[in-house]
Amino acid sequence: MEAKRLTPATGPRPTSNWIVLWGSLTLLLLLVGLYLALLWAPEEATMGIYQRIFYYHVPAAITAFVAFFINLVASVVYLLRRSRIADAWAVASAEVGVVFLTINLITGPIWAKPIWGIWWTWDARLTLDLVLWVMYVSYLLLRQLTPRGELQPRLAAALACFFFVDVPINYMAIRWWHTQHPQPVIFGGPGSGLAPPMYVALAICWMAFMALGYVLLRLRIEQEMDRHALDDAQRALLLEDVGG
């Protein structure tokens, strides 16, 4: 039996070109963003230095939402087409989304402690972030606990559809629930008007995070496809054995 063509395991990989280009661009953007956020942007009047955390906090959240949206689209495409590449996109975007949302959830309390005086509050936005995080971690766990093969992407895609339907219901439930509870803090965050340089710093940081997200996503997709190649090769060998 003719074994499937394998990616050359040694020697230069076809990925090397783009990773150098995108990797250096991302690193540059990240460093520029860091400089703008920490030194260049003016100090905020009421929150002082702590407001600078927002230059990482907000872009991380937006990047995570973009990743989860990609996950949904890829899952639906998988259910319709059953294509491996769609599933690779789905698993990659879920992982990258969880990474960025973790950053968002860690930087949030670090900011809240000096400003609000508390680490955490069941504010609507925080709660929804946490719920999303919990959901996609359970998505990754499902993938981990399901044997590789045709079943795993199928179940994962169905779960992604459940999440999509769940998010708006969650939004309504959490908002209503939240309004019934006294709000422990006065929210004086951004949105109450940022100075133009702050927008610039925020935009650069967001671009840096999106570029980084793209690099991570693409690396993870290629890894997933490599794993498929490995699965195929192993199966082919096994069939040869059986065929004698």
Binding site: L34, A37, L38, I49, Y50, R52, I53, Y56, H57, A60, E95, V99, T102, I103, I106, T107, I110, W111, K113, P114, L212, L216
Partner: peptide, 16 residues
């Protein structure tokens, strides 16, 4: 806390 927040973000990315 600002240093901690930025460091946390970098560390998580590097770990991943």
């Amino acid at each position: 806390s600002v240093v901690a927040a930025f460091a946390a973000a970098w560390i998580i990315h590097i770990v991943y």
